Computed example of a mutant assay.
Amino acid sequence: MRKILVGAVTLVSLMMPLQAFAEEPIASAEALLHQMDEASRELSYELSYILIKKNSIEPLRYRHALEDGQTYAHLIYLSGPPREVIQRGNEISYFEPGLDPFTIDSNKMVAPLPPIMQSDINELSANYDFISMGRSREAGVACDVVRIAPKDGARYSYLLWIDHRSRLVMRADLLDRDGEPLEQYRAVSYVVNPKVGDVLKSLRSVDLPAVVQLPPQPQAELSWQVNWLPQGFESVSRNRHRLVLTQRPVESKMYSDGLFSFSIYVSEADSYTVREQLVRQGRRTLHSHLQGEKEVTVVGDIPPATARRVAESVVFVGSKNGANSTAEKAAP
Rank of each mutant, 00 (worst) to 15 (best):
K3Y: 10
V6C: 04
S13Q: 02
M16G: 01
E23Q: 07
A31F: 03
D37H: 13
E38Q: 04
E42R: 15
S44D: 05
S44H: 12
L47C: 08
L47S: 12
S48G: 02
I50M: 09
N55A: 10
I57W: 08
P59T: 11
R61L: 07
R61F: 02
R63L: 15
R63A: 14
A65Q: 09
D68G: 03
T71I: 10
Y72W: 03
L75H: 02
Y77C: 01
L78M: 14
L113N: 06
P115R: 06
E123Q: 12
S125V: 09
F130W: 05
F130L: 05
G134V: 14
G134H: 13
E138H: 08
A139P: 12
C143F: 00
D144L: 08
V146G: 00
P150L: 03
A154I: 00
A154L: 07
Y156H: 08
S157P: 08
L168G: 01
L168C: 02
D173W: 04
L174I: 04
G179M: 09
P181L: 01
E183A: 08
E183Y: 06
Y185I: 13
V192W: 00
V196I: 15
G197Q: 06
V199E: 12
K201I: 14
K201F: 09
S202Q: 12
S202V: 10
D207L: 08
V212R: 07
R242F: 00
L243A: 07
L245F: 10
L245A: 09
V250T: 04
K253C: 08
D257T: 11
F260L: 15
Y265M: 06
A269R: 07
R275P: 00
L278E: 02
R280A: 11
R283V: 15
H287I: 08
L290C: 13
Q291W: 04
G292H: 03
E293V: 13
E295Q: 15
T297C: 11
G300I: 15
I302V: 14
P303A: 09
P304I: 10
T306G: 12
A307K: 05
R308P: 01
V315P: 03
G318E: 14
S319V: 06
E328F: 13
E328R: 15
